[in-house]
Design a protein around this nucleic acid. Structure first.
Lengths: 210, 210
DNA sequence: CCAAGAACTGAATGACATTCAGTTTGAGGC
DNA sequence: GCCTCAAACTGAATGTCATTCAGTTCTTGG
């Protein structure tokens, strides 16, 4: 058996990424054997080398796919929330956190990749992350136009905003003493506190204390 | 050559941890070969198994040592800042950020360890992290006694505070497009913004805008 | 001085990633 | 329909570690 017949042809690149993400979640670790991916796809390990330079390239592809999925989820919320930038900031953050907590290993691959992935060597790899950030900045800019964060340096606040949520999500993912619900509550509490602070700067529609 | 003579006896456990941390920093990756650690220590790889159950145990020890060093640095600032809780929060955060940016790989090992380390299986492993957090909470409590954050839920704000700094540090460590100075500036900016927010809740000694 | 055990070492073993030569199939030219 | 070639794989190495184990050499208590 060598080259497969047309009927059995399978879209290895796409399926490999898909299965890698699935195995990443299943094993909770980046150390997924290429052999396991190949088996899940239905080919042998060397066959993957026809589509990816090496294992790192496959993980990079999975990472990019992760950014794509995260962007899509955030973008869906964005579309749904047109006209309510404050609501977008809140629900977009929830969506972000939910994605992270539901795909912890993929999230770790996206934001704490092992340096050997050579992520920074590839100009495309940070591009997806930048898109996610730009979505946040758009939300902040709109919020500012609606009276929130008057006079604030959005670049600066945007990074702080992202840092807070990324930090909360990371710490909660890492803390294995908490179950899923507890992680979510803890993360949501941080997001809510953040939103309260922003609300406090706004046109006084949202009261500071409940 | 088998058992070493007393003169050549070397404190393998301590030296192994030390060299592991050094190699971690040098290689910028958790994938430090045990052989390399052994060579740096001056013994063979199997000799390490007399002191650590396996490589993960060695990495856990390095991680604990990292928490110890971080705690020491924060504690030094704490002692130095007695009577100025707001100053402690600021300088303690700087110390935390400096530690993270100067030991990026060790920091990653401490806060984004590969799950296979089995970190959560060991009740001691989170203890050190908890001490660092309790130092922060003490700072917040003192700040509250001095008039800042009136009525705030410290547990909640403490976690948010930590999340923000951890997030900023993590994102900056990960961004390889920035050089060391730029990472530091970016992180400091986040800390300053955070401190401004806390100052704004205080006894009006610290003006909100510069 | 001796026995027992401590502390290592060198030589396997085993899991993977990665490479390579060889095989089979799809497609285009005739 | 047949032939040739490149594409797409496969099975069998190779190399890099982590980990184990049997065997060797010190140290120490008697």
């Amino acid at each position: 058996m060598a080259r497969p017949r047309k009927e059995q042809e399978l879209d290895i690149p796409r399926r490999a990424v898909e299965e890698t993400i699935r195995l990443l979640a299943q094993q909770g670790d980046f150390g997924v054997p290429l052999t396991a991916v190949a088996q899940a796809v239905g080919c042998t390990a060397p066959a993957l080398y026809g589509h990816f330079r090496n294992k790192n390239a496959l993980l990079r592809a999975a990472r990019d796919e992760g950014f794509g999925r995260l962007y899509n989820e955030k973008f869906a919320v964005f579309e749904q929330m047109r006209g309510d930038p404050f609501g977008y900031l809140r629900d977009g953050s929830y969506a972000y956190a939910r994605f992270a907590l539901e795909n912890p290993t993929l999230y770790r691959l996206m934001f704490s990749p092992p340096p050997k992935l050579g992520v920074s060597d590839d100009p495309w790899s940070s591009e997806a992350g930048r898109q996610v950030l730009s979505l946040l900045l758009t939300g902040l800019r709109s919020s500012q136009e609606h009276g929130y964060l008057p006079g604030a340096d959005l670049q600066r606040y945007g990074f702080m905003f992202w840092s807070t949520i990324h930090g909360a999500v990371s710490l909660n993912i890492q803390n294995r003493l908490l179950d899923h619900a507890a992680k979510w509550d803890s993360t949501q509490s941080v997001i809510d506190a953040l939103m309260e602070m922003i609300a406090a700067t706004g046109p006084a529609k949202h009261p500071i204390t409940s």
